[in-house]
């Protein structure tokens, strides 16, 4: 790794130049190349049409979440308490939690079926980061929160796919 200040050839991965002590941190980070890879590594998720969050409270009955999902044609609702995101309820959760139980969706509370403390994104996270989270966690949608924990939207796998598709075609 060549020091940009004095030109000394350092061992890869060192933090300061051995000759002039110039800070070398970050120099060996991979630099995005061209095209799609560059876009995914640099574009923040707010380039996507962020879907406004549809929310319920932890004490709402599950039936309300199901009604909202049908009405808005969405695959998840966010569970919010005191303005902060505390859980998520998805189609997947609905299948796994409700099928084969005799629970009444009019009385069963959200807090009993939601996925608490879900993985979240922040507005300036990159598309590559979102993609990676979705791939390793097998998520199809991720809530986006502000630094104070307030949810501002949901990013869906389809929105990312559409963005990639549009980029590749142009």
């Amino acid at each position: 790794m060549r020091c940009p200040s004095c030109g000394h050839e350092n061992l890869p991965g060192v933090e300061v130049c051995e000759q002039c002590l110039h800070d070398l941190m970050g120099l060996d980070l991979p630099q995005p190349r061209e095209g799609l890879q560059k876009h995914l590594m640099e574009d923040p998720i707010h380039v996507l049409p962020l879907r406004p969050p549809v929310t319920v409270s932890p004490d709402d009955p599950v039936g309300r979440a199901l009604d909202l999902m049908r009405q808005h044609r969405i695959g998840s609702v966010l569970v919010v308490e005191g303005g902060k995101l505390v859980g998520i309820f998805t189609e997947r959760g609905a299948l796994l939690q409700l099928v084969g139980t005799s629970a009444d969706v009019k009385t069963l509370r959200m807090r009993e079926v939601m996925t608490p403390d879900p993985v979240v994104l922040h507005e300036d996270d990159t598309l590559a980061f979102a993609l990676h989270q979705m791939s390793i966690g097998e998520f199809r949608r991720l809530p986006v929160v502000r630094s104070d924990g307030r949810p501002v939207g949901v990013v869906s796998i389809k929105d990312i796919l559409r963005y990639i598709f549009t980029l590749c075609r142009s």
Binding site: M25, D124, M134, R140
Partner: peptide
Amino acid sequence: VQDIINFLAEHFPTEVFNLPPRSRQVFEAP
């Protein structure tokens, strides 16, 4: 759609995904 996302994730060099979540994020210390 998940299969396609996995395919995309696999076709990125690993180091791309080990970058900080925010592109301009800088660590104060090692």
